[in-house]
Design a protein around this nucleic acid. Structure first.
Lengths: 335, 335
DNA sequence: GAGAAAAATTGAACCAGTTCAATTTTATGA
DNA sequence: TCATAAAATTGAACTGGTTCAATTTTTCTC
């Protein structure tokens, strides 16, 4: 049926070992090389990755596990990772665990049974899993994206979340804002805590006392952002600036401001999170903290591949990449 | 190193053929079954899918190819498909072709080299590919989601796009609207054309002459929807109702209306497309056409698996599922 | 309890590669 | 030209399953 290495060997009049060596990049005698190449071409030979995997225990496959495939931030990162990996002839097997701990365990085992060579994990709000230890024991590298999981001693790739907040709030302070509100994400998550931390640090650095009523929670959801913003603008003394710490909350908050006919930046200044298409559509264009999803994805992919190939020189590494502030027109400089 | 079927056979004191038969669901003599089960348990044996695949040419893997992993609609469908497939012990290998024809070919070949057992394809605006014919020749089933590809004779799963538009527009007509505008998607795509078609059919059915200036194009993008809406509301005689034919355009249009301080539904009625979280946040809540992404995903998965398992009884089938209209408060009944 | 039919089991051969000890070929040097 | 070292090649054995013809065991019948 299909063309095998033996067919190529016969046609090229060499042994199958020679063909195998050719395919794996070893040098052949010039004359043999030419005949092998010609045989491959003429027979239309294609490598059988399954057979290869059986002996080598390599499937050229990286597992990707995330809470939800509909999470724009995660899929942006995965896109970048997939592109990089495909260039290296690796494919990704994706599993979604629907934010449920028991699913996470199950999916991790599922992928392990499929002999993924490495794992890129977006834990979201899920705790660690004993299955991860099995990966480590089996020597399957894991890269955790944008989360910490302190009990798993492995590589991590994150944005510098607290620094992102710090710089956003610092920018507001430099524009003479003092009454700066934050719409926080879920404090049970690493990113949620870190982004809050940066906010507090910035205030502290500039000797501004944090005010409890300016610290709100949107739990990383659309509706949460909407409600938090509503609450903030109905305070007796509303803040002069709002900083939201994720895309969905940014979006919800903007809708709330629009609805209440509050003008940005005239009535209130605003810094959002994540820079997608929609920032162009909202008026005025928003000043936002942009997450370098491309770089995150590439870094995650590169790191996991480095481990797969046996380079553990800097293990475990925590790579932090900086966010970028995109200055647009949603922040007013106060007198 | 790892526990094989031979280890199990030795421990259970049967031949490896017997263990293999047990694993594949054949009946054993009671006593043997018990010993095999015990051996499997005690040794912690796990099936090696790679080895299995080598002989059976089955990888228990379905390839998924789409334009962009960040497309919410597609990923919603994929989530549902993935859940169903995982339940059947299949995994999905995902490739993103970044809306480029040459990438599509390359990714399709990439997956074929990985011996996917079937393919779920979201062609988006891409044309057919010769590689698809190779799949068909190799007997690898293909299910196309929400697109047509007339030159590929295979299964399709779509929503009933033209009917979705028809019913939305009909609903507006029943609320006594006559000046109904549409914000169309890209007419180079199947969904774009079909949704436009349903609009025209509804007008025709109720003897309403379509007006050229009410037929606008947003090309399925945020910004496109925004600009089309702006154009519509600045017409000398603006429409009394706007119907948008995709999520991103709905979003863009709403921003444009908000910005222009046009009240929905007092000044203009509105029907959007796709029902996500954000409909809850926008005020007033939008009447929308909801796409049953869960059902689409399940159907696509079920169909491809049926083919994988050799059931070609109704091949090729075009499954059309109906959209659902969610009535909220964005349409006003005219006198 | 013998003989025949049915059911269950066995294990060598196979899938398409890799690997490596043994062998052959080529290159080097005096 | 020959001995030797270095490089290239060979092919059997292996990876962990499945398959199926041959064999063994069990069941059934009289």
């Amino acid at each position: 049926m299909s063309v095998t290495i033996r067919d190529v060997a016969k046609k090229a009049n060499v042994s199958l070992g020679t063909v195998s060596r050719y395919l794996n990049g070893y040098k052949l005698k010039e004359a043999n090389r030419i005949r092998v190449e010609q045989a491959i071409r003429e027979l239309g030979y294609r490598e059988n990755l399954i057979a290869k995997g059986l002996k080598t225990n390599r499937t050229m496959t990286i597992g990707v596990v995330l809470a939800s495939l509909t999470d724009f931030f995660a899929t942006s990162i995965i896109t970048a990772a997939e592109n990089y990996l495909a260039g290296e002839n690796y494919s990704i097997v994706v599993c979604d665990f629907n934010s449920k701990q028991e699913n996470l365990d199950q999916k991790l085992r599922f992928l392990k049974d499929r002999f993924v060579d490495g794992l890129i994990l977006f834990p979201g709000s899920c705790a660690s899993s004993e299955v991860l230890q099995e990966y480590m024991d089996a020597g399957i590298p894991i890269v955790i994206v944008n989360d910490d999981m302190p009990d798993i001693n492995t590589d991590k790739v994150t944005i510098d979340n607290s620094n992102a907040s710090f710089r956003a709030v610092e920018y507001l302070i430099h524009q003479n804002h003092r009454d700066i509100a934050i719409i926080n994400g879920d404090q049970n998550t690493y990113t949620g805590r870190e982004r809050y931390k940066g906010y507090l640090e910035a205030l502290q650095t500039y000797n501004i006392e944090p005010r409890e009523e300016y610290i709100t929670y949107g739990y990383f959801s659309n509706r949460g952002g909407y409600e938090a913003a509503k609450k903030l603008i109905s305070l007796p003394k509303p803040p002069t600036a709002i900083y939201t710490t994720n895309y969905y909350m940014t979006f919800g908050a903007i809708i709330a401001l629009n609805e209440a006919k509050i003008k940005v930046p005239d009535d209130i200044s605003f810094i959002g999170f994540d820079h997608f298409e929609l920032s162009d559509v909202i008026n005025p264009p928003l000043t936002v903290v942009e997450q370098p999803t491309d770089r995150l994805g590439q870094l995650a992919a590169k790191t996991v591949l480095r481990r797969v190939k046996g380079d553990y020189s800097d293990f475990p590494v925590h790579l932090r990449v900086n966010t970028k502030m995109i200055l647009k027109d949603s922040v007013r400089k106060l007198k």
